[in-house]
Design a protein around this nucleic acid. Structure first.
Length: 436
RNA sequence: GGAGAUAUGGCACAAUCCGGUACUGCAACGGACUCGAAAUCCGUCGAGCCGCUUAUAGCGGUGUGCGGGUUCAAAUCCCGCUAUCUCCUCCA
């Protein structure tokens, strides 16, 4: 949620910044008009209430002295009727202002490139392992035997998309045998790495209420992509960002505890409405996938430093796994609803010959904190909104996909990245196993 | 799932039956005493949110778990909801 006082006082600047995020200036005018009417109504009703409070005192005083107060009561009956009508009007206007404001995306930080889509994104840096040139995957033209991760997985008998579709539907799968073991190794490795960086590990509810979904900005605008429990005020989380960030909703965090860092593995559920036909095969786009998430609560002055370090925490995982990647800064048109600034980390997929998003790290500044009412006390003991950040660290399924493509061998086997071998009982390779 | 109870400031509580300025204590803050501190004494203290204005402040509104209703007036009466506790039932 944006600060309506800021919008009121900086109309021209706000119009421009909103336009950068694809919001027409008309919307702002509409909001501010409603807001003005709302404030006028408040003033009228508050004057009446002040009168009524004074009159009520007099009535109470008269009654205590056994005096007649029926004239005053009759007069107040009329005033109260007026107050009731105005209160009703004010509630309507409050709702309208809130509903409208709830659909405004966050404003972008000043250094975010302005653009309408991903074409305006700006590459920040590229990384690949030192010995990467020695592997065939780095060749500009992939060798013929190089397979897509889903073909590797199916040939090894460790990914079963068919049975996933049979039992659940499209975009669901079973991991089988070493596949399940590899997935488990990957997320255990990620959680251990984040723990070393000072993140507190959490296991969260994976069903949350509407107010939590509103708090992080999924609701009210993006309900069609969510798995909502029918007839209940509950939704299967699209990301652990929701329960992790809402952990402190409505609370004041003691300022000496900031910054606070959480990490959690959770399944993520997405309907992928509007993505029909995209990435229909493999682990890239599923209705249910595992993700290790990172969340931070910080003071405003430290949030951008923490954004950089959170991005580095995501990169660290890929570096230790030896997977090539690059980091891009998203443009104003490509960022998510709640973000003020976002870095995407994209991993190299040699068979597709392109980078795929494997992590998205955002600073939402006080946008989510204002929706959730998460505050701290500053040096003057005044309540201020915290800044919240979130990032994937990383999408587990996509990491498995990247390993299968980057570490596959000509004989169809897959070498297990060294850092994962201790998590797989010392196993060094995935080879085809008899299957069920 | 069934029955009962509870929800009031940072904390602990009173007022609820029978509607009329939300009591008191602790904590906190300011001051006195003291070389200093403790103790003691005096004073202040409804957080947050909203609006207005002469804007580091002042005034007003709101505010007794949440949402409604009745009333000139609701912590108090009525309806709905949520959470917590106890017991029963069930269960991993």
């Amino acid at each position: 949620m944006l600060d309506i006082k800021y919008l009121r006082k900086n109309v021209l600047e706000a119009e421009q910044r909103l336009q950068n995020r694809g919001v027409s200036p008309d919307k702002l005018t509409e909001l501010l008009t409603l807001d003005k009417e709302r404030r006028d109504t408040i003033q009228s009703v508050e004057n009446l209430k002040a009168d009524r409070n004074a009159a009520s005192d007099k009535i109470a005083y008269a009654k205590r002295n056994k005096e007649d107060a029926s004239d005053a009561i009759a007069a107040m009956q009329k005033v109260s009727a007026k107050i009731k009508a105005l209160d009703l009007r004010q509630t309507e206007l409050d709702d309208q202002v809130q509903n409208l404001a709830a659909h405004f995306p966050n404003l972008a930080a000043p250094d975010v490139p302005v653009g309408t889509d991903e074409a305006a994104n700006v590459e920040q840096r590229v990384w690949e392992p030192e010995n990467y040139q020695s592997r065939p995957h780095a060749l500009l033209e992939s060798p013929e035997w190089l397979k897509a991760h889903y073909d590797v997985g199916e040939a090894l008998g460790i990914l079963d998309f068919e049975r996933g579709a049979k039992v659940s539907g499209a975009r669901f799968l079973y991991y089988v045998g070493d596949g399940a073991r590899l997935e488990r190794a990957v997320y255990n490795f990620m959680l251990d790495e984040h723990r070393k960086e000072g993140y507190t590990e959490m296991i969260t509810p994976i069903v949350v209420n509407d107010s939590a979904m509103f708090g992080t900005g999924q609701y009210p605008k993006f309900q069609e992509d969510a798995y909502r429990v029918e007839g209940l005020d509950q939704t299967y989380i699209p990301t652990a960002e929701v329960p992790l960030t809402n952990y402190y909703s409505g609370e004041t965090i003691p300022s000496d505890q900031l910054p606070i860092k959480f990490t959690a593995l959770s399944p993520s559920f997405r309907k992928e409405a509007g993505a029909a036909g995209k990435d229909t095969r493999g682990l890239i786009r599923l209705h249910q996938f595992n993700k290790v998430e990172m969340v931070k609560f910080t003071k405003p002055e430290q949030s951008y430093k923490e954004l950089e370090s959170m991005t580095n925490n995501a990169e660290n995982i890929l570096q230790k796994l030896g997977l090539p990647y690059h980091v891009i800064m998203l443009s104003t048109g490509d960022m998510g609803f709640s973000a003020a600034k976002t870095y995407d980390v994209e991993v190299w997929m040699p068979q597709q010959n392109l980078y795929r998003e494997i992590s998205s790290v955002s600073n939402t500044e006080d946008f989510q904190a204002r929706r959730m009412h998460i505050t701290y006390r500053d040096d003057n003991n005044k309540l201020q909104l915290v800044h919240t950040l979130n990032g994937s660290g990383l999408a587990v399924g996509r990491t498995v996909a990247a390993i299968l493509e980057n570490y596959q061998n000509e004989d169809g086997s897959v070498t297990i990245p060294e850092v994962l071998q201790p998590y797989m009982g010392g196993q060094e390779k995935l080879v085809a196993t008899p299957h069920y």
